[in-house]
Design a protein around this nucleic acid. Structure first.
Lengths: 246, 246
DNA sequence: CGTATAATTGATTCCCCTCAAACCCAGTGG
DNA sequence: CCACTGGGTTTGAGGGGAATCAATTATACG
């Protein structure tokens, strides 16, 4: 790994310090969090928690990508969330997750035991306020995704996913996103299909079609080069772009 | 109308007192809310706000049903939320809604001007806490709906919608839901289609099919009788029922 | 009764799923 | 060095479920 060991990292030097649930905490509050936090790391493919299982902690994704997904009895699964660095895991006041949570790359979580965290929340409005904002953002994202799932064609779905990942990579890395963009897919074709409500074959076919039409180029199978981000956004069929991408 | 006029209703006697954003407020806080609240009523079909427009207030649905929906340039629309009594409208800290909000029945809102409400939130943790809980519940509901949109067949989608409405009516009315249940649809076929990511023709066909198969009966076109709620739940294809229905 | 809106039903088309085979590539071990 | 493996991916052939286009029927309302 080319990242420093996180075992003893101070909150003040944390890479997600200004975006995570602790973003608005002052230095006193940070000291308290610092004292109660601990890190956990998950391998590629490892399950962080199964739907319905007890989860003794909540926390933030520090590094890596995890997914939330729902499954029907007969095995059909739908991904309902993509957790990137700074996203919050778990729900205060509830000890189980209604979703399977899975690491799709190596993931590091900054964890807090549920009880102490809830007690801290009760006395530290900054945390609850930040969590409310983050939750409202996630709700907006979930609702935007409902439009993708319910009304978009397979081609538009693929373009939407690539656009979203480009946006989020831009937001995290603070990179200006204009002209030629390279997106590194954190997901397999199957995971993309589960996110988009498609089959993996259809995902593969549509990616090939976008490549054939010159909208994207592939470098290996996880790197996608987008020569003109606006052409991709147009393929997504959205009304107006969200403003994150110039 | 068979409901009393709400113009001067006291919060303490409000029908949604114990479920809305004000649920945890003590009597002092309630006095403050009482002083700043005002009611607005919308006709059937009236738009409460267009996506992107300024909205000077937030509030709670007191009576009636409203919908949140997203629309693409070419007119495809996807409903992303159903607002029933006690649901919150608007977002603190943001002056526009990303969705169209429409009254599908006559709707009464209990409104608060944005500024005063946000100031009250800053000093009254009970409100923010309740709003966080409500938002987390809505996020769960949105994610559950993503599974419906992404992975269920048309027939399962219809059954899922009927199940959800039955659940929510039960929760609001505090009625025990067992055996034969009657669901009053607040939505037209087209609105159902927009919620389910289908066309109105497919909605109609699947309702006819469920009727033909004895899973439901129609009384008029808005009342649906479910002889055996468990048979309907089975049609929805869900893994395990949510526990609200015995 | 006549009009408008909502709902049902039918005929046909097409997009995506299903089933199936081949391919690519990295890792492993003979 | 190369065959062997296995996961991930691509591509093909065919079928099915929902969309589309179109007509008819019900319901509400003046």
């Amino acid at each position: 790994m080319d990242v420093p060991l996180l075992a003893d990292q101070k909150c003040s030097e944390c890479p997600i310090r200004h975006r995570a649930v602790c973003a608005r905490c002052d230095s006193d509050e940070l000291v308290q969090l610092d004292a109660m936090k601990y890190y956990r790391t998950y391998e590629v493919g490892q399950t962080i928690t199964w739907a319905g299982d007890e989860m003794g902690f909540v926390g933030s994704v520090v590094r890596g990508v995890a997914t939330l997904s729902n499954t029907l009895e007969d095995g059909r699964t739908q991904m309902v969330g993509l957790l990137l660095p700074s996203d919050f895991v778990g729900r205060p006041g509830r000890s189980t997750s209604p979703y399977d949570i899975t690491a799709v790359s190596e993931v590091t979580l900054c964890c807090f035991r549920r009880g102490p965290f809830e007690r801290l929340m009760a006395t530290t409005p900054h945390i609850g306020e930040r969590l409310l904002d983050m939750t409202l953002d996630e709700l907006d994202a979930a609702r935007e995704w409902m439009l993708v799932l319910g009304r978009k064609t397979a081609r538009e779905k693929i373009a939407s996913l690539l656009t979203i990942i480009a946006r989020r990579e831009a937001a995290i890395g603070m990179l200006p996103v204009t002209g030629e963009v390279t997106v590194t897919l954190p997901l397999t074709r199957e995971a993309m299909a589960d996110y988009l409500g498609l089959t993996l074959e259809t995902v593969s076919r549509q990616i090939s079609a976008l490549k054939r039409d010159g909208v994207i180029r592939l470098e290996g199978q996880r790197r996608i080069v987008v020569p003109d981000i606006h052409a991709l956004i147009a393929e997504a069929g959205d009304d107006v772009d969200g403003g994150m991408i110039a």
